[in-house]
Design a protein around this nucleic acid. Sequence first.
RNA 1: GUGACCAUAGCUCAAGUGGCAGAGCAUCUGGUUGUGGCCCAGAAGGUUGUGGGUUCAAGUCCCACUGGUCACCCCA
Length: 426
Amino acid sequence: MYTAPRGTHDILPEEWPYWRYVINNIHETAALFGFEQIDTPIFETTSLYIRGVGEGTDIVDKEMYSFQDKGGEEITLRPEFTAGVMRAYLEHGMRVRPQPVKLYSIGPIFRFERPQAGRYRQHHQFNVEVIGEQDPAVDAEVISVAWHLFKRLGFRGLSLQINSTGCPKCRPGYLKELVAYYRQHENEICDDCKRRLERNPLRVLDCKNEQCQPVIAGAPHITDYLCDDCKAHFAGLRAHLDAIGLSYTVNHRLVRGLDYYTKTVFEVYAEGIGAQNAVCGGGRYDGLIEELGGPPTPGIGFGSGIERQILTMKEQGIEPPSLPKPKLFVAHVGEATHVEAFRLTMKLREAGLSALYGFGNRSLRSQMKSANRAGARFALILGEDEIAQGVVTVRDLEASTQEAVPRDQIIAWLQDKLLFGAPSGA
RNA sequence: GUGACCAUAGCUCAAGUGGCAGAGCAUCUGGUUGUGGCCCAGAAGGUUGUGGGUUCAAGUCCCACUGGUCACCCCA
């Protein structure tokens, strides 16, 4: 038997209330903050990601779904949104639009990883980017988009961590200090950190290995080495977060796995969803657009995993509203009535009334069961008697009453009941 | 890529030390010539993840593989 590929999942009908709830809230939140939607392809030319995300990052080194298509193009299923959105910003000359350009996307992301709780090879993200403005108020606004969404979804126990990773002016100086410090403790750190020191020294800071903890604790803080510009920007971010009452902790060890981040980085964590508890991560990438061949343009964004948001909902007992069910079920008795019942079903739908038709030759009892289980409000019964009399028997499945309604009045009768007179709000 | 645990019906799980593969839920049918929910009866549903081994006999013991789950790395 075929099964879904490793790390992928079917989103079954019973899951969709969660998905619709989250997605609806995403659209509403984005609109509230004045973001516009953009969809980019789920694959791009491989070099875009190598260039944008950076060699030496885990994503590029070991997590990309890359392949050659039949035309010989090197293709990669998107492992993140930002590079693709920046490509689109440049390709469509969005710098001539009013700045900053505020964009959001929802869609699948692919990373070749070992699956575990909250981690999949295909997952979905809500992604936000603000391009063309370096004001730290933008950073605070972007963070508050995620925060607002999570509050709106009803999440409790959230925590926000922020840090600044500096810029090309000040980061090299800090890295020199960091590496020098680590050289003094070379025999106290794990093998991974020894490698990190060569390839991506910032990452030693978020090593979880027990033996490295004392070394990390004594390591210099990047915020002590920021240039005036970065220092002012970070202070500005904090001032704006304070102003809107969004509490955070500064985590000197928060770096992030992508090369393009400058200045602000942040993550939001949820409680109780397992080891993979980051529901949102992002940061500023003021050098990225230039790296991709565009003019110097600042930008900031985040990605937020929808599966992890849904996990959080389930963990915290947050029930999504249920999806609407068909209001009507058309049952029939006797073979001669099938076609007429089918036609009636279609008429109902054309009048905007959601309706199911009882397929096959099943007994009325069986059809009534189906109507009940489908959650229909009314069962419309069409038998030879009804056809002869020009009526439809309408059974109210909630009130357990029924009456004969003339065929030519049935739609108006149902609309009246369903829209105005109904005792049921569900 | 590394480690731990797990694998029996669509789902949740039974089947002392090896001895006829079962239940609940769900599905379908009937109990009412044309009436749902509750109840009752019945049916269908399995190569016990795959392959090998031990044994008179394997769901059960052994080995390998595959898959799943969780954790590490890293991240959403």
